[in-house]
Design a protein around this nucleic acid. Structure first.
Lengths: 210, 210
DNA sequence: GCTTGTATGTAGACACTGTCAAGACCGAAA
DNA sequence: TTTCGGTCTTGACAGTGTCTACATACAAGC
């Protein structure tokens, strides 16, 4: 059983009150998701991994949906952070930034397939949840602003620009989803530089410049 | 496909031997999948819907994976058939045929979101199964041949052509997956003709002509 | 006509699952 | 000290997949 160092510095004997069970459960939930997939995900396994009673997760997150929703919120933040990191490594003019964000999108999926599946293909998430809703919106707004800068048209008002958003999103998303399900094997097998170059090329042509 | 054989209506008294339980179970499985989603899918619910004992499905399909794999095989055939139907309605020159197949791809997803999710996002399928493997390959080969005809290069041998396959597939797949998860709401809200036109335009630019 | 074999289903049991209600524990406010 | 609210455990319940043993029906072989 694993226990993180609490602020009190207690050891050996587990105290009745965990101290930071909420985040420990989220960590266990991610590990379980990676190991068993969404369809094999089990609240009780999460509890066991955290070394806690079987009903503890429900106490913190109401039910399975609650726990997965909280985890999805975290995942979304990491997802957007990965996109921003890829952007930081790219040239600073808009088209390159847009393509780089797509590359980050795909990198996150490849590095975290279970989390990617969770946030995009699970029917056990509550998108009414304000935290998850905001986190998801953050990613969308990044994409919109990148398309805006790249094409010079505002997707919030211009329909052609909005179609460019759809196209860029779909291209990156399709590549990500097909890659993690093992369906673009030869693209996946390319060495990193050619792999990235191929992806960037595909994403770039998805947006039509005016 | 192999669904309806004996269109015999429901009898009042069920005989011990159902007669065509295998296909009845597949029909029930599809209905259950639509109603409960993959994550809520239950063998026992399928059995109950078919009016049969709880262990009957396992007898025909070994386990849950077996039943879902058999259903996925049927779904793949319908999926490819929908693509071919869309192609039949389109102009007969290659680029239009390729784009139309993508439109069919997306139409199937919108009409059968549960089946689409099953064949593309489930970890409960056995792709080693010959039937499923063949069915899946059929769709891929259709795409490859369309890209071949459109660009004049053979994707099986030419790498650039292969990247065009990746791009076309990813674009259609991304649009499909995002649409059925309700993420491209304004594209989805367009009237049918403009909806189709927008999709065709996005798919067309995904493939780079030589 | 029989018997027998084999498909096709059923019935029961087991270890799991999520969720609910009730209680045990602990820190701190009163 | 007493009380109280939040944290966590315990026990129960119905529902799950899958295993085993058993029941039924149909079509051969004699």
């Amino acid at each position: 059983m694993e226990f993180d160092k609490a602020a009190g510095g207690e050891k050996a004997k587990a105290p009745y009150h965990h101290g930071d069970l909420r985040s420990a459960l989220l960590r266990s939930a991610e590990a379980e998701l990676i190991e068993s997939g969404i369809e094999g995900f089990s609240l009780r396994a999460v509890a066991k991994r955290a070394g806690v009673s079987h009903a503890a997760p429900a106490h913190h997150f109401t039910d399975t949906t609650g726990l997965l929703t909280a985890l999805a919120e975290i995942a979304f933040h990491r997802f957007v952070a990965t996109q921003r990191a890829a952007m930081a490594d790219a040239e600073k003019h808009p088209p390159a930034q847009l393509a780089a964000s797509g590359l980050g999108y795909i990198r996150f999926a490849l590095a975290n397939p279970a989390l990617f599946r969770l946030i995009f293909s699970s029917d056990r998430l509550n998108f009414q949840d304000p935290g998850l809703h905001t986190a998801a919106r953050e990613g969308f707004e990044l994409l919109v602003s990148l398309v805006h800068q790249t094409t010079g048209s505002n997707p919030w008002t211009d329909e052609t620009a909005r179609r460019n958003v759809d196209a860029a999103w779909a291209t990156a998303h399709g590549l990500a989803d097909l890659l993690i399900s093992g369906r673009l094997t030869d693209l996946a097998a390319l060495p990193k530089d050619r792999h990235d170059a191929a992806i960037l090329a595909i994403i770039e042509r998805s947006v039509l410049m005016p």
